[in-house]
Each structure stands twice: as structure tokens, then as C-alpha cells.
Simulated assay, not measured.
Amino acid sequence: MTADHRTDNEQPELGRMAQEFGDKPLDVRESTHYKHEYVQTFVDKWDELIDWKGRYESEGKFFVDQLRQRNVRSVLDVATGTGFHSVRLLEEGFDTVSADGSAEMLAKAFANGMKYGGHILRVVQADWRWLNRDVHGEYDAIICLGNSFTHLFSERDRRKALAEFYAMLKHDGVLILDQRNYDSILDNGFSSKHQYYYCGEDVVAEPEHMDEGLARFKYTFPDKSEYHLNMFPLRKDYTRRLMHEVGFQHIETYGDFQSTYRDEEPDFFVHIAEKAYREEVDPS
């Protein structure tokens, strides 16, 4: 958090144009700081980074198929961003609610819903750590995509958020959560196929600083404007362990939408965690 030390319940003013990292940006390691990072000018450029058409083609029907295989009807998109997956799921017939902690992102998502297909998104501003307070009902599935979970810097916050996700799922519900392949970046250095998630060919997204507690990425756009995000570099097995410890019974992890991969190869991991209780089979 920056020097003004806003409390979690205080919302920064809408329409801010400049990011705030203070004099020591590498020391900014707070779960609530994303509110100061997704300023209006950055949000307005976010779709250049994603490239909706490129993202649609790269992921194909992966998420749609995963949800349909589990007979999902209702979906809570807890990190809707500018609305790409919410719009996609609405087009595919899923009953979808769109949540985000950033008011700027929600406004952009709502506008994108109207732009792409005339969808009226049901949007809710919500902090994951108190999701049940801000969003009502139970869902067949919760999705947390776009590397969003890495905005949580403390293990306490990550456990609290996962517990909130778990509580809002129906008894046979599923959580789909993704992350960058931080293991490879930390251990081998950064490389990216720039093919699956951030498909905008004219936007450069690369780490400016990496350590075990901080991944600071810089985003450079064609007009030479630059923005930064400070994130926590989650390791794959750590994320899976937290999911198990919160209560998820069965977890599958895909690398760039493939079930078979070498750990250093994927740009992104997708974890699919089932809540349904699975009885152990007696091997005898």
C-alpha cells in the first residue's frame, strides 16, 4: 500500500490516471495495492494486452468444455477484469455473475458486455477475502483467471480467499484458478510464447524484478506508455497444497491448456479443483 495507508474498506477515487508505488516500489507488497495499480488509463489499455480475438482463438473451448463436463450451470467470475470470460460464458449459455475488486475494471467489463453481444453483465465489486459478504448465493463453479490470484501477498489472505471460494461453491462445485509459471521464471529466467493469455502482439509484458516474494511486471504499449503490477510469484505446488488444505478434494493442473507438459514449458498453469468428496478406494 502507498504512503496514505488507506484501510481495506476505503475505496480509492475513481478515474485516477497515474499509478502510485511511492519512493520504494519494490517494497510495495500489499494485497490491497491493486486498487492503486489498475488506474483508469491502464484499464483503458488492458484489452490491447489481452486481444479478445487472439485470446478466444488461443484457449478455444477449454474452459467451456471443463465446465460442461461437470454439468455446471451457474458461474461466479471472481476476477472478471474487463469481462472477457464473463462475456464468453454468457454467450455459451452459463448463468454468470461478474465480480472484481477494481471499480474501474467492472465499469470496463460492463461496457464490454454491451459492446460484445449486447450482454448486460451482473457486476459486483467484491474483496475475495469477504466474498460471502459482498456476493450472495451458491454456484456450480467459481473461476479466478488472468493470473489474478497472485495479487494476494500474504498466505493468510490466500487461505481466506480460497476458503471463501470453497464456501460459495455447491457441494459438487469446481474452482478453476490460473497463474503464471512463476517456477520457471524464478528458476530459469523469463521467456514467453506470448500466445495464450496476453495475445496483444504490440504490447510488451515482462518482469522488471523477481524474487521469491515479488514479481514486478512492466507493461509497455505502442504509444510508449508504461505501467507496472506488483504480484506474488506463486509456485505451482504451493498453490495446489493450499487448495488441498482448504478442503478441495481433487485437483488437476494443466500447462497452457494441456494435461501433459514439462514443468518449465508452459507460460501458465490452470488448476481445476473439485469440492466434491471422493471416498478412498480400498486397494485390497
Rank of each mutant, 00 (worst) to 15 (best):
T2F: 12
H5T: 08
T7K: 14
N9P: 04
E10T: 08
P12I: 13
E13W: 06
G15P: 11
G15F: 03
A18C: 11
E20F: 10
G22V: 13
D23S: 14
K24N: 13
E30H: 12
H33G: 05
H33Y: 09
K35F: 03
K35S: 15
H36Y: 13
H36P: 06
Y38S: 02
V39F: 02
T41W: 02
F42R: 00
F42N: 03
V43C: 00
D44K: 15
E48M: 15
L49T: 02
W52V: 05
K53L: 10
S58D: 04
E59P: 04
K61P: 07
K61M: 05
F63H: 07
F63I: 09
V64E: 15
Q69G: 09
D77N: 12
F84H: 14
F84C: 06
H85G: 13
T96M: 06
T96C: 04
V97C: 01
V97N: 00
D100A: 02
K108A: 05
A109I: 00
F110L: 12
M114V: 09
Y116H: 14
Y116G: 07
Y116C: 02
G118I: 03
L121D: 00
L121E: 01
W128S: 01
R129A: 09
H136F: 10
A141W: 00
G146K: 00
F149S: 02
R156M: 15
R156I: 06
D157H: 07
A161R: 02
A163L: 08
A167T: 13
A167I: 07
M168G: 05
M168K: 07
L169H: 10
L169I: 03
V174Y: 02
L175M: 14
I185E: 02
L186R: 09
G189L: 09
S192R: 13
Q195V: 10
Y196L: 03
G200Q: 05
E201G: 12
E201R: 12
V203I: 09
E206A: 14
E206K: 15
P207R: 08
P207H: 10
E208P: 11
E212S: 13
E212N: 15
G213K: 08
L214E: 11
F217M: 14
T220R: 15
K224I: 10
K224P: 08
E226W: 05
M231W: 05
F232R: 13
F232T: 09
R235L: 10
K236W: 03
H244K: 11
Q249M: 11
E252G: 05
E252S: 11
G255E: 00
G255D: 00
D256Q: 09
D263I: 10
D267G: 03
H271G: 04
A273Y: 15
E274G: 09
E274L: 10
A276R: 14
Y277H: 10
P283Y: 14
